[in-house]
């Protein structure tokens, strides 16, 4: 009997709307890592957004319509992988809830759910992948994004992958699992509270050894990076996939070019 793992699995990349517009390098990094792990990667063209912003804001009807489109778009692939715990969590955990009362779509949502993975978790738990020949000479603090951590159990996977990167030390923060205050629309509805929350995180990182913050969700990382640069703090922020794909020499961190480089 041939196990499905013995042929290269077909993986559809769920790019995520934020990565698509704000930081394409994360999606390129994800493709590169998935290919190195032996996957056949496709990027379905009719994908847009997972619908989470509307779903979390109570717009259930719209969220369901978007979910149906995502379910259709990603049918037929062995796996669906997203470089984000919160978007993967929406597909995996919330789509089946959205169609709880709809037998036909519930089955399709559960099928998608069973094939959906967050990137670092897919690479380790499913593909048993270890990066090699990658160097990143920094002490990093890893931010465990809430949805990835609590909905999908993503905790050790990125650390396991980073352990194989030369030159990288992880300085664990006491607040690694604390929310950064992003929370989707929360950060624009309650900017004062959100800023105080991100300041707690930043304060804890600055008190430790780390010169870089890594994470697996661009929303949180933009929140951290945006606050760091607003306060003129030197800590840099990258998405973990960019580090694992060895891309950090070619692109600026999410915190942007240093002031010297910007002046050039």
């Amino acid at each position: 009997m041939t196990k499905p793992e013995q042929r290269s699995p077909s993986v559809a990349l769920f790019v995520t709307c934020l990565v698509d517009v704000m930081r394409p390098s994360i999606a390129f990094a994800a493709v590169s890592l998935l290919e190195r792990a032996g996957c056949q990667v496709s990027v379905p063209e009719s994908q847009t957004c997972c619908g989470q912003p509307g779903y979390n804001a109570g717009h259930e009807k719209n969220a369901r319509l978007i979910a149906q489109q995502v379910i259709e778009t990603f049918e037929g692939y062995d796996y669906v992988v997203a470089p984000s715990g919160s978007c993967a969590g929406t597909l995996k955990k919330h789509y089946p809830e959205m169609f709880a009362g709809n037998a036909a779509w519930r089955g399709r949502a559960e099928d998608l759910s069973s094939r959906t993975w967050e990137l670092t978790s897919f690479l380790t738990d499913q593909m048993n992948f270890t990066p090699s020949g990658v160097r990143f000479n920094h002490t990093v603090s890893y931010h465990d994004s809430c949805s990835g951590l609590r909905e999908l159990g993503v905790k050790d996977q990125p650390r396991k992958l980073l352990a194989a990167v030369d030159g990288t030390e992880i300085a664990e923060s006491d607040l690694a699992e604390s929310c950064c205050g992003f929370g989707g629309l929360f950060c624009v509805k309650y900017p004062d509270i959100s800023a105080a929350m991100v300041d707690h995180k930043i304060g804890d990182v600055m008190a430790g050894e780390a010169d870089v913050v890594l994470g697996g969700d661009l929303g949180c990382l933009m929140n951290l990076a945006g606050r760091l640069t607003r306060k003129n703090l030197p800590t840099k922020v990258w998405h973990v996939a960019e580090v694992l794909a060895g891309m950090t020499d070619k692109i600026d961190p999410i915190t942007g070019p240093s002031d010297d480089e910007a002046a050039k």
Binding site: D20, V188, P191
Partner: peptide, 19 residues
Amino acid sequence: GWTSKRDMPAPQGPTFMSQ
């Protein structure tokens, strides 16, 4: 709501889908 407290990192380049 965003920029009162933080900078918005600019998009890195054209969208991923177009690149």
